[in-house]
Each structure stands twice: as C-alpha cells, then as structure tokens.
Amino acid sequence: MPLTMEVFGIEPRTVGGFPSSMRAALKVESVPLHWMGHVEVTSVDANGRLVRGVLDSSPPGGVNPYGDSHRELDRLVRGGTYSVLPRISGDGYCVFDGGDLAVMASEMFDLCARVSFPYSDRVELCARIIRRVENLPARVMFEGR
C-alpha cells in the first residue's frame, strides 16, 4: 500500500500522560513513493472501464522489480544525490522533524522536476505541505503497512 503522511505540531508538554503533539494531525492518504516499490498498475474492471491504481509491490529490501523506469527512479533516489528521501521507510512508522523537513521538501521538489513518474503530483503535494510547516515546530510521520 502507498504510505500515509501525517503532520503534527510538536508540543514539549504532555497532556494526560501522552505526547500532546500526537493529538492533532494533517493526514495525507495514499502517498505513492515509487522508489520503494509503489508501482502504478492499469487494469480493466468488470464493467470494462480502465482502472488506474497504485500497487505496493516492494519485496523485503525495497528493491523494485517492476520496470526500468522505476529501477531508474530507485537508483536516482538511493544513488547519493538525496539525503533525506532514502530514509523514508515503508516499514512501520518513520518520523522526521527539525532541519530534515526543509531538506525533504527540497528533495521532493527536485525529484519531481527531474523525472516524470505516476502520481508525482501527490509527492509535490506533500512537499508543499512540508514547506508550509518547515519553520514551525512540526513533525512529519510516514506510516507504511
């Protein structure tokens, strides 16, 4: 499954014994990160309509077996150009804050400008959100399945 991205405010105090920053969050559903194996699929449904979707196909290790374009994207992301994007994991929770946020937004914008890939507009959406909160005490969490 594609990831879910959530943005929290970071509050140093706690409320009722648990971190108050976890109470309110912007949630972005279905963020496909193709270098992790979220591959676009096209099929035909029972009514003969063309259905486009995103299939999580990443095997353990995160190597994407589908298509040269996705291999190229995977190599690009993990090839040393980017510092924060390769740290996003689809395995459980993955949290970023502080200076990582500005870098992550820049890297997402850069990736979308460099290469064309399906649903890149959703990655750009995430980048714009992060840019909106990067100067605030905020935490960005990706949740995989």
Binding site: V7, G9, I10, A25, R132, A138
Partner: peptide, 15 residues
C-alpha cells in the same frame, strides 16, 4: 499559538 497548535492551523491554511 503554542508550538503544538501552530502546525495544525498552518495545515488548515494549507488546505
């Protein structure tokens, strides 16, 4: 706003 409230309201503005 407090630190914890600011980001959610910035996100509301983003929407």
């Amino acid at each position: 706003l407090t630190a914890g409230d600011a980001a959610p309201f910035a996100c509301l503005a983003f929407i």
